[in-house]
């Protein structure tokens, strides 16, 4: 049995973002990169299934991006994935979701993956498209935003999260693609022995032309800071002084202090 997990490397949101010269995306300078949040759940779920099946499935982890994404592939290998595929594309950030999906599908087309896990959406682009598009391009069945996963002899039962925390339950058969939502499981940390082992694991490098890239269907402009809508006050400085100001403001603007701790 073969499992593919698609992971994206994204910047840590705590960083200071600056648009690149063409204002099509951010400039990498000064940013710290890590694995997209949802994708960690995807990796974890694949590894849990591998363990459940006595270690027989082979778990491949794939990422499309420039050289720096190898570091994130390494993290997935250290978590326990068996091998890596790096589609080395320095232009990845300029590609639209359709193009990214075409590269992933181009790779998966020639393999027989029984299951593909992706994240539901990436934190930087947030399009929630790539996973479902890959499924459509491969013609495999797909459920998005899963919060529970169960495998029983090629039959998959999943719960997808709906508005208000309601869960919809669906059943499908492999081959299938599932996009994973935050909270699906609790992703593991790589252990030291696994980090050591992962250094020997193979990462195949492919060029975009080798897997095939479709033409883009959309373009991006005006990448910019979010303009503040609200003229709320900002307090900075010594915490004791700020705390005093906050108490004064809460007293002036709300009745909550006067009601006190009475429940």
């Amino acid at each position: 049995m073969n499992i593919l997990v698609c992971i994206k490397q994204v910047p840590d949101p705590g960083g200071r973002f600056m648009p690149n010269a063409a204002a099509t995306w951010f400039d990498d300078a000064g940013l710290v990169f890590r694995m997209n949040d949802c994708d960690e759940y995807a990796v974890e779920e694949a590894l849990r299934l591998k363990e459940l099946l006595g270690g027989t499935p082979e778990v491949t982890v794939l990422s499309v991006g420039p050289m720096r994404v190898v570091e994130t592939i390494r993290k997935a290998l250290a978590m326990g994935c068996d091998r890596g595929v790096h589609i080395d594309d320095p232009e990845a950030s300029e590609r639209d979701p359709w193009q990214i999906a075409s590269m992933i599908a181009g790779h998966a087309m020639n393999r027989t993956y029984d299951l593909i896990f992706t994240g539901m959406q990436s934190e930087d682009r947030g399009s929630a498209q790539v996973g479902v598009l890959v499924a459509e391009k491969l013609g495999v069945s797909c459920v998005s935003g899963i919060m529970a996963f169960e495998w029983s002899d090629h039959s998959v039962t999943v719960e997808r999260e709906l508005e208000g925390g309601i869960r919809g339950i669906a059943r499908l058969k492999s081959p299938a693609l599932l996009t994973c939502q935050q909270g699906l499981n609790i992703p593991r940390y790589p252990t030291l022995p696994n980090i050591m082992k992962s250094k020997k694991k193979e990462i195949s490098v492919l060029r975009p032309e080798e897997v095939g890239v479709d033409a883009s269907l959309s373009s991006v402009a005006g990448f910019r800071h979010h303009e503040r809508k609200n003229a709320g006050r900002i307090l900075e400085g010594e915490v004791g002084q700020i705390a005093d100001q906050v108490v004064a403001m809460l007293d002036a603007k709300t009745k909550v202090l006067r009601r006190g701790g009475a429940r």
């Binding site: 949101p13 648009p19 951010f26 930087d124 947030g126 959309s218 991006v220 910019r224 800071h225 979010h226």
Partner: peptide
């Protein structure tokens, strides 16, 4: 929105 809501962009 982009980057967890800190940035935005225009997609055409």
């Amino acid at each position: 929105d982009s980057c967890n809501g800190k940035m935005r962009r225009t997609v055409k």
